[in-house]
């Protein structure tokens, strides 16, 4: 198993800085998600690791070996492209065998060995018997699996996936996520995948690296990034939070003259950003630190989600209540708010 060390990597595209000094250690055998909004540089970073983008600055090591100067052909990084990039004029089997057949004769496995390898890989990706079909005859999910089999065929040192589920519909996405997790556990490849979907990242990855404007904002386990976001950007990007502009004074948090609750220790007085998730707001029968008006109620399978306005000028926040708790639209409810994710405003 090979870890990847990214040191000070920068990348310029025609005057714009796509990667701005990235440092990132990817541990051997881990499944790491590169998460960020579009334009954050996550795909560029992945392509840089594969050797598809020449770097402006920095180094990339594969398991102690400096791979910065290695050509893309020599890096042995399995890459799964966002739209799969299957060779449309080759059958599935020819696609999977491609990486083996382009090797110099001395290193090329025998024909029957290649065929056996293709069969094994098709079994691994749960598509036995489709070797003779062409990519155009497959569904999106099947293409995705073939693309992965093709990348695995060359026994890559690391596996890199660019938005692996981006082009698939919701149900197929869910199935493939579980399946990718299985494959990763069985093959144990160091795996990096790019996604803009934070749910996907935290569900699938051992660790998540959050990128923004070409920088790494935070790297950590799903628990760490969800529960202890390093900064306002991470707090806003993961965990579906509503952001309120607040002021902190004497240990209390206020928004628009409404008192929300106690500030965590260590936050200086002044302007700050508060990120509220549904779990941070509890609807209580009486008391509470503040109150709000229910403006909309939506049902999900196991609970009810309330949209609550604290005042006319603040954005609506969301709270979840159990099904037996009766609330009506327009009702004013008492709330307690946990003001944990609070970050001093940067200006």
């Amino acid at each position: 198993m090979t870890g990847i060390a990214v040191r000070g990597v920068a990348k310029d595209f025609a005057g714009t800085r796509a990667l701005d000094g990235i440092d990132l250690d990817i541990r051997p055998g881990e499944l790491l998600a590169l998460l960020g909004p579009s334009g954050s540089g996550k795909t560029t970073l992945l392509r840089s690791i594969a050797g598809l983008e020449p770097l402006t600055a920095g180094t990339i090591h594969f398991g102690g070996e400096d791979a910065t100067g290695l050509r893309v052909q020599d890096r042995k990084a399995g890459f799964v492209f966002q739209h799969y990039a299957l060779f449309r004029h080759m059958t599935v089997a020819e696609n999977i065998a491609y990486g083996l057949t382009v090797r110099p004769r001395a290193e090329r496995p025998a024909r029957h060995e290649i065929l056996r390898r293709v069969e094994d890989l098709l079994d691994l990706v749960q598509l036995p018997g489709i070797g003779k079909r062409f990519p155009g005859q497959l569904s999106g999910g099947q293409r995705q699996r073939v693309a992965l089999a093709r990348a695995l065929a060359v026994e890559p040192r690391v596996l890199l996936l660019d938005e692996p589920f981006g082009a698939l519909d919701a149900q197929v996405r869910k199935d493939l996520r579980r399946w990718l997790r299985d494959i990763h556990q069985r093959t144990g490849h160091t795996t990096v995948f790019v996604t803009h979907d934070q749910e996907e990242a935290v569900e699938l990855a051992d660790r998540v690296a959050i990128l923004n404007r070409g920088r790494v904002e935070q790297v950590g386990s799903p628990d760490e990034v969800l529960d202890h976001p390093a900064n306002a950007f991470v707090a806003g990007f993961v965990g579906q939070a509503v952001r309120l502009d607040v002021t902190v004074a004497e240990g209390r948090v206020r928004a628009d003259a409404i008192e929300l609750g106690a500030a965590p220790a260590g936050i200086p007085d002044g302007a700050a950003s508060l990120f509220l998730r549904t779990g941070d707001i509890a609807v209580v029968r009486s008391g509470g630190t503040t109150s709000g008006v229910v403006t909309a109620i939506t049902r999900s399978a196991a609970s009810r989600r309330l949209e609550i306005r604290l005042s006319d000028d603040l954005p609506a926040v969301e709270a979840e209540v159990s099904l037996d708790q009766q609330v009506a639209r327009g009702e004013r409810v008492a709330l307690t708010i946990r003001a944990d994710r609070l970050f001093p405003a940067t200006r």
Binding site: G78, F81, L86, H89, A151
Partner: peptide, 25 residues
């Protein structure tokens, strides 16, 4: 360029990628 890039991540040289991927396409 994705197909050519895919060929190159699988170890094909640039010329090889052109001959086996671009040209058939």
């Amino acid at each position: 360029t994705a197909e050519e890039e895919a060929a190159m991540t699988l170890g094909a040289s640039g010329l090889r990628a052109f001959l086996t991927v671009t040209l058939p396409n």
